[in-house]
Design a protein around this nucleic acid. Structure first.
Lengths: 337, 337
DNA sequence: GTTGGCACTCGTTGTTCGCGAGTGCTAATA
DNA sequence: TATTAGCACTCGCGAACAACGAGTGCCAAC
């Protein structure tokens, strides 16, 4: 167990290290944080904490650097002080109100996160296959193609050009659409299942066309499951931790692999509210030197995930505040500052 | 005017510099390129060429480095040797055939360019407002919204949710669409003008709604005028010229500013065939250390532009070959390797 | 016009050395 | 017993310096 003073030392080291970026010495701590105690006393504490795994020395007789364990304690105490809120629930309405739909809203959000935090912002939507269907439509383009159009909750629109196995008139297509539209209001998951039986049962000779259309639609939603936008990565140039080209590269390459990043978000964005993943806690080894601040929101189905990715020694307070701010914007009507 | 041998020296210096990245000395040249002549002779030539502006010395008594003028000569002689072809004309068909439409085709192309060249690939479409209209449709979603759907040549689809000033029934919307569809086959530019008179003349009380819809559509096409995809920038980490964080940063920041990049492409992509823009020839000062290999194709209207951006001392031969290869793929039926 | 020779230039690399921030340990102190 | 002052020791960092070598310009000879 940690004593009161040990905790204080840990928090001070993290705080100071985040500010200065340099190893923290006992003298600094004694002068700036634990004013009552002398440097020697603190040295003893630090030696103990090092043994316990909270601090490390980059080399013999240098100052101390916090480990991930220390960051963890720092972040947890910070998050505890925060009021537990449930922001972001209204994100679907926010998307509905946005001029440029899902893509627009997400890219706007990620940009805003980047700009306000000075790190890299991300915005994504997961489990889009659990979103409710609003309307479906088939639009005949020529004798060989029709456009499959899906309008989902939140005014999210997807479309796909489908090649017809045989020429279907616009009337037939409309009839088809009318039937499927009876399923509006169900989650896509359910719609798919219901359609499965429906197609082979009632549609008879158009079944082929519908099966392929269905498959296309599923593919769209699966692909879009991870719709992800990342904000201005050039912010990373100003982060002193990434001046080293090697570290920069590691981070950057994962930012370019949308899949990896999306997996990460999906994994940690399942629970509501704001969370932080620090350094080695990340599944991806490339993120060893980074922390990710995430917020997930949704009502169990489709979820919106916002995140900021930055160096381990980022300004967590500020980033959390930024995230909260953007979430508040989403809940508030318009969202366009 | 340049003598035969001066030309040879210039080409040799550029070639050697592209390969090694180090200043080129007279001895190297004498041993590897102009085998008949001694180092001293070449030194004299080089001194002359420096005075003429083709070569520079980074510091007194170092080897020579080619200037942009020298690169220009190098690239021009290379392009002259190339057969003048007209590849890429079929790009609209290529997009039509692509499973994921315009976005899919462009992002695929840029990825392919990046992967094959090991630099950064780009693919864009400009002057989309000159593309032909194929079909338009209005789909009523609820009492306050309809979805505006535009299908353009090449199966390019755009959509936009429009707020109605007053509730319009699906019938009225369909009637509207039918009338506008009479203009299918015209370039969007023309459609817009024709619609202008049409609306105020015939549509009477729906004019408001149509004007706003028209404006939205125009905005879509204008925004999409610069649809641009950039391939994996992490390739740049392996380019020795960009190991220096400063140069890397300059290039990177312009790659993130889509606008700037699009302007650049639009500017140089107007003429058909493959062209190269070297270093300071670029309008953007951030590209001082870079060269851009571009190809524009189209029949005067909407144009497809492919490009590769890399260091000034890139392997121009290879990049031009890669570009040609991708263009050939576009002309050939499927394009999905 | 071409070439070998030679003195000179200048960036690069490696070495040495002193500085200073910080530590661990010990002995004195409250 | 916990705390503190004192002291010797460690080690990264930056400056200063020297040796190296690739390359040049120039000149005299061919």
């Amino acid at each position: 167990m940690l004593t009161e003073r040990q905790l204080e030392v840990i928090l001070s080291v993290v705080h100071e290290f985040i500010e200065s970026g340099a190893e923290v010495g006992s003298r600094t701590l004694s002068k700036r944080y634990l004013k009552g105690r002398s440097a020697a006393t603190i040295r003893n504490e630090m030696a103990d904490l090092e043994e316990m795994g909270y601090l490390t020395q980059p080399y013999t007789s240098a100052g101390r650097v916090p480990t991930t364990m220390a960051y963890r304690i720092f972040v947890d105490t910070m998050l505890q002080r925060l009021p537990h809120n449930e922001r972001g629930r209204g994100w679907i309405k926010h998307i509905e109100a946005h001029r440029d739909g899902l893509r627009g809203a997400l890219s706007k959000a990620s940009e805003m996160l980047s700009r306000l935090s000075n790190y890299v912002g991300m915005a994504a939507v997961t489990q889009l296959e659990r979103i409710r269907l609003r309307k479906i439509d088939f639009i005949r383009v020529d004798s060989a193609h029709f456009l499959l159009l899906v309008i989902l909750e939140g005014g999210i629109v997807h479309h796909k050009m489908v090649t017809m196995p045989c020429d279907l008139s616009q009337d037939i297509l409309e009839d088809l659409a009318r039937k499927i539209n009876a399923l509006a209001g169900y989650e896509w998951n359910e719609v798919r299942e219901m359609l499965g039986g429906y197609i082979s049962g009632e549609l008879g000779r158009y079944a082929d066309s519908c099966v392929s259309a269905l498959a296309e639609l599923d593919a769209i939603l699966a692909g879009e499951r991870t719709t992800l936008y990342t904000g201005s990565m050039s912010n990373l140039f100003d982060v002193p931790d990434f001046q080293d080209i090697g570290k920069f590269r590691a981070l950057f390459s994962i930012l370019e692999q949308e899949n990896e990043l999306a997996k990460l978000l999906a994994r940690y964005g399942m629970k509501d509210g704001i969370g932080v993943v620090i350094g080695e806690e990340n599944a991806a080894p490339e993120l060893r030197n980074c922390s990710v601040v995430l917020s997930g929101s949704g009502d169990g189905g489709t979820r919106a995930i916002l995140g900021v990715i930055g160096p381990k020694r980022m300004n967590y307070e500020r980033v959390v505040a930024v995230l909260d701010r953007v979430l508040r914007d989403m809940d508030g009507a318009e969202g366009d500052e």
